[in-house]
Structures are given as C-alpha cells and as structure tokens.
Amino acid sequence: MARTTYQELLDAGVHFGHLTRKWDPKMAKYIFMERNGIHIIDLNKTLAKLEEAASAIKQIVKSGRKVLFVATKKQAKDIVAEQAKAVNMPYVTERWLGGMLTNFATVRKSIKKMSNIDKMTKDGTYDVLSKKEKLMIQRERIKLENLLGGIADLNRLPAALFIIDVKKEHIAVSEALKLNIPTFAMVDTNSDPTNIDFPIPANDDATKSITLITNVIKQAIIEGLEERKRDKEEEAEKEAAAAKAKVDSGEEPAAEVAPKRERKAEATEAKDGE
C-alpha cells in the first residue's frame, strides 16, 4: 500500500516550485512544466522518490540506528521537532553548529555539560551558589538546550539525515558527505539534488507540504521500529524454544538457561541505548 497518494501531494501544494529565474538546472528532470513564471514539480516523480526514501529509512531504523531530522527554517522547525519526538529520533531545529557531525566529540562534551548542570540542580550543589552564578548557569542551560536539546540522547553519529531545504542546511549536507552518512531530503526547484542520496522533489516552503512529507517519513520509521520489535520477540521465542529443547533432551541443566537469556537481553538493551 502506498504511503501517500498523488491527490494528497496535490492538495498539500507539494508541486509548487520556485520562480523560474531562481531554479537550479540540476532539478530539470524533476520539473513537469512552467506556469505563470513558477516551476511545477512532477508529482509522479515525487511519489516514486518518496517511496524509495521511506523504504530505505525504514530499513535503517529496523537495524536499530538513528535518523537525525534537520530543519531550521521558521515554517518547518516546529513540525519537524514534533514528528521527530513522536518516534524518539534526534533533531536540530534551532541552528546547525558547524562541526556537529565532523567534530562530534566536542559536541558531546557540550551535551555532557548540560547534563552536569541538571545534576547540580538535583544534588543540591546549585542551591549553595550565589544569585549571580545561578543566573549565569541558567542562561547557559537555556542556550545549550536550544542548540543541543534535540540531540541530548545521541551517543554516536546518526546513521542518516533527513533534511528540509538542502540549500539552507548546506553545512549539514557537507558534513554528512564528508562522513559518508546517507542523506534524505526535501529538494525544491532552487536546490542542487546531486549531493543528496535520496532526494524528494517537493515544495520545502509550504507548511502543508512539509507536514505531509515529514509524516510519511515518520510513518516509515514507525514501521521500522515495529518490525525490529517483532523480530526481537521472534528471536527470543526461538531461543527459548531451543533452550527448552536442550533441557528436555538433557544437554543442558535448566538452572543455566535462564541466566544466559537474561544476560543476552541485557546486552541487547545496552546496544539499543547507544
């Protein structure tokens, strides 16, 4: 079953590109026609590319890895933050810090600093500080939260990036390219799609268009998470059956089976939390 339809894309205004004078010639193959000085995107190609992107993201998530959502433009940031939170994925919606991927170790230090401030408020250290020191710490905490709050739980580099407006987020695209991190993105008629692994030709300015495309990606992530959960449950059932068979045949004492299963479950949880 298709994740969306031609009519839904049409109703959301996904086909409206930029003024013809602002176009990027590399987007020519995704443009259907020109109308009243505006390029019209070929929605049949959008449908195909969106399905391709959603399927690939689903497989990434199914393997237990994270997709980083990136959108700092005003009309996209709230939509993207909401959709990313819904599937527990990291996101950047305030400002892309140069080196967020290529200098990830330093970014992790800043995240740790934010965590340490939170610890101070819990263990009582914060209470003994002067009013001026408290104010400085509060300001720093707010600044760090705005910049890094969406990636606070990201312990390693993301497996992929989902980007709204590759022209605006060119630094993120460049860093992903250097690190060979796959990129998925809404690409409008004024942008270069050649550096994007999974370009989705679409209007990246209208809130309806952004909401629809982002929602399709979110649903693909949900599918990936559910399939991963099912696979783990099936694997656990198979192991339990195999262990029971060994006990029944006398190959392994019953007392040793349960601790082994518990240790494996703990190891799997630890890996998922990375």
Rank of each mutant, 00 (worst) to 15 (best):
A56L: 09
H39Q: 15
K168G: 07
Q219R: 13
L154S: 11
I222W: 07
L101K: 09
D78L: 10
D11H: 06
G250D: 09
V80Q: 00
K62V: 05
F16P: 00
A84K: 03
A255N: 09
L225Q: 15
T189P: 03
E235L: 10
W96T: 02
S55W: 01
I60D: 02
L212K: 10
K246C: 03
T93L: 02
D192V: 10
K112V: 11
P193W: 03
L9P: 06
P90A: 00
G17I: 12
A185S: 04
K143R: 07
L97E: 12
L68D: 01
R65Q: 12
Y30S: 08
T20I: 10
K168S: 06
E234G: 00
T211Y: 09
M1T: 11
N190G: 02
E52A: 08
E175A: 09
Q75V: 06
V187I: 12
Q219K: 14
R139L: 10
K66D: 05
E94H: 14
K26R: 15
N44C: 08
A236D: 04
K109N: 13
M27G: 11
H18R: 15
R156H: 13
K62G: 08
I142N: 11
S63H: 05
V80S: 01
E251H: 01
M114Y: 13
K26E: 15
V166T: 15
K229T: 08
H170K: 11
A53Q: 01
D272F: 13
K113G: 00
T5C: 06
E8K: 15
M114W: 10
V87L: 05
L47N: 02
E262S: 07
E252D: 05
E251T: 00
L148P: 04
A206E: 12
I217K: 08
I57H: 02
A255L: 12
E251R: 01
A267P: 01
T72M: 04
Q7I: 13
K178I: 05
